[in-house]
Amino acid sequence: MYPRPIPEDAKIQRVLYVGGVTLVVALWLLPLIAVMLTSIRSNEELMAGNYWGWPQKFSLVENYTAVFQQTAMLRFFLNSLLITIPSVIGVLILSTLTGFVLSRYPFRGSNLIFALFVGGNFLPAQIMMIPVRDLMVRLGLYDTIYALIVFHIAFQTGFATLFMRNFIAALPGELFQAARAEGASPAQVLRHVVVPLVRPALAALAILTFTFIWNDYFWAIVLTQSDAVKPVTAGLNNLRGEWTSAWNIVSAATIFVALPPVVMFFLMQKHFISGLTMGAVKG
């Protein structure tokens, strides 16, 4: 492990270390603290320019209930889960496959395919909007959650392939030579060598794609129009006004919407276990 772990018995050192990191986090999250303070402030205070001071009047309950009263937040939340979870699973599977092949089975043109995956990520969404929408209409998926699932899987597969290819390429080549010498098929190599070793990478990828898909709003408005299939970001944005927005309520919604990815990150950390050693691989 790097950096060298602080030994378990160095109690004082450990406490000091955590304290120091906490301080860094506090500075780092100053803008988040502002969002949190705003979410318990009254709108009048914001209008008066009290962005950073302590709230004079606490509107915690009012603001957070307003989020659920003004929009069908819970239904949107459920829709988001229905869209995001299958998409993430799809991305993880497809990109593990593509990343594995592109890193370990070079063929003529494999670099070109890799470059296409990387390059396809770069196009700004607004331009792809109409071609993608027309495709979904042709497929009969327009205004369903499947349109969003198909699009998100396709789009994130580009980034995820880059990600998985590079992680698999970083694994020591001897592992693969050994497996091949024992006559393992590509599918066996994938299952018994690659997947166990890239667990931290898969965990990180799951977190990132979950976050990106969860936070998408643009595609939700391009590919759907019924409230029955819209994701949670639509609920958040519905709180914004034509002329004016109650930023205290938007902030409360922001905190609520941000919870699942943060929880996901917290839970996924148990897969961030280092220990890539030759001995760990059975075979």
């Binding site: 929009t71 027309d134 327009y142 408005i221 391009v222 129009q225 409230d227 639509a234 944005n237």
Partner: peptide
């Protein structure tokens, strides 16, 4: 059935839905 969109997003969305799936 009423579907609501926020004011800004609606400006983008209307161009899409008027063509392919109008309410």
């Amino acid at each position: 059935t009423i579907n609501n969109m926020d004011h800004e997003a609606h400006k983008t969305a209307i161009r899409s839905y008027l063509v392919v799936g109008a309410p």
